[in-house]
Design a protein around this nucleic acid. Sequence first.
DNA 1: TCTCTAACGCAACCCGGGTCGCGTTAGAGT
DNA 2: ACTCTAACGCGACCCGGGTTGCGTTAGAGA
Lengths: 207, 207
Amino acid sequence: MSAEASEPGTVRPGGRTARTRAAVREATLAELARHGYQGLTVENVAARSGVHKTTVYRRWGNAEGLIADALDLAAEEPWPVPDTGSAESDLRELARLVHGGFTDPELGPASSAFVAAAVHDRAAAAALHAFFARRQRDAAVIVTRAVERGELPSGTDAAEVVRTAVAPLYYRLFISGEPVDRDVADRAGSAAFAAARAGVFSRRDDA
Amino acid sequence: MSAEASEPGTVRPGGRTARTRAAVREATLAELARHGYQGLTVENVAARSGVHKTTVYRRWGNAEGLIADALDLAAEEPWPVPDTGSAESDLRELARLVHGGFTDPELGPASSAFVAAAVHDRAAAAALHAFFARRQRDAAVIVTRAVERGELPSGTDAAEVVRTAVAPLYYRLFISGEPVDRDVADRAGSAAFAAARAGVFSRRDDA
DNA sequence: TCTCTAACGCAACCCGGGTCGCGTTAGAGT
DNA sequence: ACTCTAACGCGACCCGGGTTGCGTTAGAGA
């Protein structure tokens, strides 16, 4: 549902169509990295990719469709979930990973653009939500391992721990506009661990 | 810096100018509540307010300028910081307040529009950041009282506690797109309290 | 190799947000 | 009361993103 006519289920997925999609996806990421979400126009992407703008409009609809497609691609990439042997340092490392994804000069603009697009377009939002759902599933193993080690109480809601570990970073980046550094990431990871250890995220069976 | 030529420092702040500003501000909030950020155009605001669109463009620049101005107004409104006698329930109540601000059918669309605008426009972002800075200062008293009562360790970073209490709500609302309810708000408040109690937000003097 | 059609290229066109120049009005100062 | 000018109203205009109709190409199937 995220980006129609962009998955290999199309009637004619061969040669030219695939080349067009690849060229447009690459151009989208390049434009995003260079000008951010503000400067992402269908015309620029069309010019850079060598694909006519009419074709881009037909297959992706608008700039948000381009982002949704690029986001689907990004979601499929593997993600190095930390495994340091300690839940607290795993969560700190997780937060640092998020921090790096937005401050890295190459990945940062595109990542920010994804969020910006999701804020005001339904298709981009759906793609971003799917992206985060997948990342949260991947990261849940951190909590699973911690419970097995006895670091966290059994019945701890893994997704909630992960959310708590990364939420302050997104809050600073996109809401309050406050700076984000490694210390912030470390505190967020430690706070999530402390709350989990205190049993705040334990599922209640009576509910 | 947020909204130039909208503060009472203008050369001619009297009668007509003030009426125009009030009419435009009211129309902006009404349009925001009805159509959200997506449907906020200068033309619609001009038509609703009875002010000519050229005038709106001259004084507010664009749609984001309108939002920045409305945000400045909202920031000046008093805010009922919870005082229940317990830090944990104060923080839960604080999170519920945020939750209510975005789910309320009247306030919600405008609040969401503020965030959406801030993601796109620097002026709106500056206004939103000022708004949050003020709210965080107001809410810091919760931690101050808690420290006096001995509920939290002295030297606890009040702003960090407040951020942790509200960040998961914003994360769900604008990033991951997951549902937000009172239970989520309560967990966020309790998590912030648990982390603070564990000393995660204690300022280190050696730094 | 031949056919058929999905997908693409192309240029003209439309449309609405945003701008410009000028005349008018109202309120601040005296 | 009178003046002076900041602020506003007004309509024409510009411009670029997005659309439309049609001709062309390439690749899937036989």
